[in-house]
Nucleic acid binder design. Structure first.
Length: 908
RNA sequence: GCGGGUGUGUUGAAAUUGGUAGACAAGCCAGACUUAGGAUCUGGUGCCUUGCGCGUAUGGGUUCGAGUCCCUUCACCCGCACCA
């Protein structure tokens, strides 16, 4: 019986499903471990070999933890709402639900072939009403909550209402509140709700007909589709993520995430410590105070003008009659620009206009002009700045363009060509700050403005509230209706509020739900936007803990057992989207006591991307003649992508190529050594480049176990790398070799012979290596260690060796190991074997080999017990001198023993 | 511009964290068995002027000893980018 991976794999996949091998239940007698993958968006293209990389890595870890005695939760589901399905519906008229379900079943069958240990009974789909009921529920909780800055957490809004009614809050007195009508009250509360309706400047994508969140826009284009995005003022649902900025930042520290990812989140949250300073201003004789935000109060003596953001409401108040026309024109012009135009061009163009008003520097009484420019953002700080051209690059560029004065306030700095932005040097031209170092001056200036009551220390965050409305169909409906224009929550017991059917998916300029029949609640119109993609993915990890609970997102007991995700595997592309929103969502639920952990994902591993490896042929221009790679420089050629299935080891299968396309049928070829060599390049895996590798095909030719092993063998999980089918034979050979330890021509070779010390040593080394590597996800080296062990073992078919070997390998190649485990006479699944028993039985080797070096050159080795002290090793080395094993080139002066490693000898 | 990261054979990559650089694979070369081989097995494979020679992007430093630590320069990748 040869290694027949096909029948083995289908046999065990069927048996696992039948026996429910991977079903898990809460079990307080065992420690839990929660391994989660970022669930996929089921796209129409299906999976390519890049997608399962992370799933394979996490599956190996899940299986490994299980062998170690943990009760492992390892679920999977689908992020099923989203734009592509709807875009597809617009083109084809097919309901997104139909295509989504079709795609899901395709994904499922592809995933099943790879042999994952998912507990499919816990599957969630974000588009399933029984799931999005809880997305809507969470939204209602956010609508019904406010962020209490004193308690520093979210609390029911009813508490705020009570406080408003009795003592007033935030500038609204109890009398005002009690006298207010419903509309007014609703307006006041909107300013506090965690989920609120508010006017903001949004990223509007005309092409998609919807608003997008900041993380859905890149370089001024939509991430989905790459369409231009412009700024637009709209009234939208938003989540008050900014209220959590400081907590999102602080608790990042303790998470076991990569530094780069944490850094990305830190930058996105963007904490900056500075000062708010009040400047008195005058406009056409009217005086009013304006607050600015700065991180460099120390430079306040260098202020030569002020700048307002065009979108700021201050512009209206601070524009003089004489300048009104130009200012209005400028503001309009800026508003028309798309995000992309604003960013466009190398060296952004400096634009701006004088407002006609002036500010007074509160420290030196200097009268300075106030300008309006797009380089100041309305959404950050106060939307107004003090400009210090000598020490800020942007202010400098602006001052040069509009010929405004530049006053250096740091001794000896040269500002003739550019500003001096460094925070170092000695202050000058700065009144009481003169002579201080910058760091000192910052503190002194802060103290000064605070003591004079003209300013205060202030910490700002870059993180904005998340825009939560999408003018789309295929998403969760908002459980909100409008009573005389006032938004009111749908009763919780009426959830889920299911997505209505609509006539057509074609864009009409209105949100699709506006066209739905009877889209009302108690006779009142319902909200017509739907929630964005990140809504459904923000709490799915909680639902897996308790997927069938009809009364709660997650029951207290299930949540108390599984707590949070111990290992989360997924791509970096979610660094500033999903991973921020999830953390926010989780913290919110934590505040209200619905979940027991403050952070959702304890440890996170970012798997790299697998890129495609494209192949090219070279056609001589104007002919149907193709020349091999090495000859192409002799001709003028066109590089043409060729389907990689027609190429093996960069050699083109000429007959297959001719059959590929009719126009190539009579192609001619110029070969090198009788072969056509193709060129290659690393590119994104995509259909248009003919470089997509389908995991199904690999399972067909090599088997799932080989695929799993190979994807891990390719290199570290975190690293991006091109897929190259070349090399897969190596791991496939390894499995065949492993198989042959058990079987030869159908003959079972396993025997009960006693293992030799050399064989045990090989096994021990492997166990040691695996113990070391698994937690670092160094699976490539673990697999290498297997190969080495097999080489060392030769044809060893002793049960004593093969049993532990099978268990060790089973997380990587579960199917073949099940088959062989059965061959060893076990009736239970290898997944139910317990790793620690083997580790205990096969203790690590007891001798250490010390290489001995003389002045850095290795001369001989000395074997010592692992427990030997450095002194013992040293005396053993010195003894070599006497016994003559060491033929010296000088006597030993000094012996340096690195415990457990190496001995270095210094020769006189 | 700011922040993070990476540079090792023909290729994917190892290196017990400061200790024989290139493990393990792929590719290539040679051989064995074969009607055949994209099967199996064995051996070889960093480079050169074959020297106790040179080699981990570059130049320096610390050390008995550096791919690893420190500084210089260069190249590439990723993230953020008028965030005051």
């Amino acid at each position: 019986m040869e290694y027949d991976f096909k029948s083995i794999e289908s046999k065990w996949q069927a048996r696992w499903a039948e026996n429910g091998t991977y079903k898990v239940k809460e079990d307080p007698s065992r420690p839990k471990f929660y391994v989660l993958d970022m669930f996929p968006y089921p796209s129409g293209a299906g999976l390519h070999v890049g997608h399962p990389l992370g799933y394979i890595a996490s599956d190996i870890y899940a299986r490994y933890k299980r062998l170690k005695g943990f009760n492992v939760l390892h679920p999977m589901g689908y992020d099923a709402f989203g734009l592509p399905a709807e875009q597809y519906a617009i083109q084809t008229g097919q309901h997104p639900e139909v295509t989504t379900i079709r795609n899901i079943s395709r994904y499922r069958s592809q995933l099943d072939r790879i042999g994952f240990s998912f507990d499919w009974d816990r599957e969630v789909r974000t588009c399933d009403p029984s799931y999005y009921k809880w997305t809507q529920w969470a939204f209602l909780k956010m609508f019904d909550s406010w962020y209490d800055p004193v308690a520093d957490k979210a609390r029911p809004i009813a508490e705020l209402e009570k406080r408003l009614a009795t003592e007033g809050y935030g500038g609204v007195s109890a009398d005002e509140w009690n006298a207010a009508d419903d509309r007014k009250k609703s307006g006041i509360l909107m300013g506090y709700r965690i989920a609120y309706l508010g006017e903001t400047s949004v990223n509007w994508c005309e092409e998609l007909g919807t608003v997008l969140a900041n993380d859905e826009v890149k370089d001024g284009l939509s991430v989905r589709g790459g369409y231009p995005v412009e700024q637009k003022k709209m009234r939208q649902w938003q989540l008050r993520v900014s209220a959590y900025a400081h907590r999102l930042l602080a608790s990042l520290e303790a998470l076991d995430w990569s530094d780069s990812l944490k850094e990305m989140q830190r930058n996105w949250i963007g904490r900056s410590e500075g000062t708010e300073v009040e400047f008195m201003t005058e406009c056409d004789g009217r005086k009013m105070p304006v607050t600015i935000f700065t991180t460099r109060v120390d430079t306040i003596f260098g202020v030569t003008f002020m700048v307002l953001a065009p979108e700021s409401e201050l512009v209206e108040q601070l524009t003089s009659e004489a300048c009104r026309k130009e200012v209005e024109e400028y503001v309009k012009q800026v508003g028309r620009k798309t995000e992309r135009e604003r960013i466009a061009g190398n060296g952004r163009s400096v634009t701006g206009v004088f407002s006609g008003s002036y500010g007074i520097n509160p420290l030196n009484g200097e009268r300075i002009p106030i300008w309006v420019s797009e380089y100041v953002l309305a959404g950050y700080g106060t939307g107004a700045i003090m400009a210090v051209p000598a020490h800020d690059g942007r202010d400098y560029a602006f001052a040069r363009k509009f010929d405004l004065p530049v006053i250096p306030i740091i001794e000896g700095c040269d500002v003739s060509e550019s500003s001096f932005d460094a925070k170092q040097g000695r202050m000058c031209n700065s009144g009481f700050l003169d002579g201080m170092e910058v760091a000192e001056a910052i503190e002194a200036a802060k103290d000064y403005v605070e003591s004079r009551g003209i300013g205060r220390r202030k910490t700002n965050y870059r993180l904005r509230d998340a825009i939560f409305s999408r003018q789309r169909y295929w998403g969760e409906p908002f459980p909100i209706y409008y009573k005389d224009g006032i938004p009111v929550a749908v009763d919780e017991k009426d959830l889920p509020l299911t997505l209505p059917q609509i006539e057509s998916f074609k864009p009409t300029g209105e949100p699709p739900l506006a066209g739905a029949k009877d889209w009302t609640y108690g006779g009142y119109p319902l909200e017509t936007s739907t929630m964005p993609g990140f809504a459904g993915s923000s709490a799915y990890y909680l639902r897996y803990m308790d997927p069938d609970n009809g009364d709660a997102l997650v029951g207290r007991e299930a949540n108390g057992y599984w707590r949070n995700v111990d290992l989360y595997v997924g791509g970096t592309e979610h660094a500033t989207g999903h991973l921020i929103y999830s953390r926010f969502w989780n913290k919110f639920l934590y505040d209200l006591g619905y979940v027991c952990e403050d952070e959702p994902f304890r440890k996170l591993v970012n798997q790299g991307m697998i890129q495609g490896r494209s192949n090219f042929v070279y056609r001589v221009v104007g002919t149907n003649r193709f020349v091999s790679l090495g000859l192409k420089d002799r001709y003028e050629t066109t590089e043409i992508h060729v389907d990689i299935s027609l190429v093996h080891n960069d050699r083109l299968d000429i007959e297959a190529f001719k059959a590929w396309r009719p126009d190539y049928a009579d192609a001619e070829f110029e070969l090198e050594d009788g072969e056509y060599v193709c060129g290659w390049a690393v590119e994104k895996m995509s259909k248009s480049m003919f470089n997509v590798v389908n995991p199904d095909d690999i399972c067909e030719t090599y088997g799932a176990d080989t695929l799993r092993l190979y994807e891990m063998f390719l290199g570290p999980v975190e690293q991006s790398k091109p897929w190259d089918t070349k090399g897969i034979d190596g791991v496939h050979r390894f499995l065949k070799k492993f198989w042959r330890l058990f079987y030869d021509h159908g003959q079972l070779l396993v025997n009960d012979g006693k293992a030799t010390p050399a064989e045990l040593k090989a096994l021990h080394r492997l166990i040691g290596k695996e113990q070391e590597d698994m937690d670092n996800f160094s699976y490539n080296t673990t697999i290498s260690a297997f190969m080495i062990a097999l080489n060392e073992l030769g044809q060893c078919s002793k049960r004593e060796i093969l049993e532990p070997l099978t268990v060790l390998l089973s997380p990587f190649a579960p199917h073949v190991c099940e088959e062989l485990w059965e061959a060893l006479g076990h009736s239970e699944s290898v997944a139910d074997a317990r790793f620690p028993e083997f580790v205990a039985a096969y203790a690590a080797e007891d001798n250490v080999t010390y290489p001995v070096q003389f002045n850095g050159k290795m001369r001989f080795t000395v074997d010592m017990p692992k427990s030997a002290s450095p002194a013992e090793v040293e005396s053993a080395v010195r003894a070599m001198e006497q016994t003559g094993r060491y033929v010296g080139d000088g006597s030993i002066a000094k012996v340096i023993v690195v415990p457990g490693r190496i001995v270095n000898v210094v020769v006189k």
